[in-house]
Amino acid sequence: MIKLISTFITRYLEENNSSLIKTDLLKIQYTLEVILGNLFDFVVILLIFLGLNKVPILLLSYVILISIRPFMGGVHCKTFISCLFVTTMYFIMVMLFTTLAPKLNNSFNIIFFTISFIIVAAYAPCRNLKRPVKNKATLKIISLISLTFWIVVFFTLPNVQICNCIFASIFIQILQIIIINTKGVLSNAKIYKHFFSYTS
């Protein structure tokens, strides 16, 4: 459905704007697919969290996500349905950890965020087959600034749920960076058929 709508709009632009070349049209279609897909995902997930009465957690997690993922990169699913499923599971896992986990040990937190900072400094931004990484140095710097901001917030605020939400969101993001950078190593393993075949 998303692809049909984006294709329809792109063809309309092609027919009514002769200055657009094929590369421009491909970029427009990809951008439309991303925007429409993300919008639909968000609406579906918002309805789920409305039913669970956990909208504040969703909104906080979403803010964290959009402040780090566009710069660090992450796992991309190959189909819209798999993307919706993975995104929904992402927010549900963050919600469960946010509401159920106790306050974590401070020493553990320091170790975790230190390792996270090193991983981001070494491997972000992640490559994306559909959208090649440009300005890698700039994206890396922004990634580190964004991560640092959330680390400062984490150690400043006393609210356990907010801290758990920050921790879980960053943990899943760092996990994606690790997965992408070990994809080649694991390409011959069984996990490839069950996970990597649905992502890019």
Rank of each mutant, 00 (worst) to 15 (best):
Y30A: 09
K136T: 06
V152I: 15
V55D: 05
G184F: 04
N109I: 14
F71Y: 11
F113P: 02
I5L: 15
P70S: 03
Q173Y: 04
T182N: 13
L186Q: 14
S116E: 07
I9Y: 09
F40W: 12
F71A: 06
N128Q: 01
R11Q: 15
K103M: 10
I119D: 03
Q176N: 13
E14H: 04
I9K: 12
K3C: 13
Q29E: 15
L47W: 06
Y90L: 13
K136H: 08
M89W: 07
F97H: 12
F149Q: 07
M95I: 06
C163A: 10
N128L: 04
S6I: 12
A168W: 11
L104C: 01
N105P: 03
M1Y: 05
V153N: 04
N164A: 11
H194F: 07
I68Q: 05
H76E: 09
F195Q: 05
L46H: 04
C83S: 06
I28F: 11
K54M: 13
I5F: 13
S200I: 04
K130W: 05
V63C: 09
L20I: 10
L100G: 11
T87R: 06
F85S: 08
K3A: 15
I111Q: 10
I119V: 14
I174G: 13
A101D: 00
T23C: 01
V153A: 14
N53K: 15
K190T: 10
I178V: 15
Y30E: 07
F71K: 03
K22T: 14
N159M: 06
F97N: 02
Q176Y: 09
L65G: 00
I28L: 15
F71H: 02
L157Y: 11
W150L: 02
N164R: 09
I178G: 11
A101S: 06
K78D: 09
K190C: 03
V63Q: 03
P132Q: 03
V94N: 09
L36N: 11
E33T: 02
F112L: 14
I119Q: 02
Q173I: 14
Y123G: 05
T182S: 08
I5D: 13
L139E: 05
T156D: 05
I64M: 06
L157E: 10
A121D: 02
N105C: 07
L129H: 06
V43N: 00
V44Y: 05
I2G: 09
E33L: 05
G73L: 10
A121I: 09
P132D: 11
D24E: 14
T199M: 03
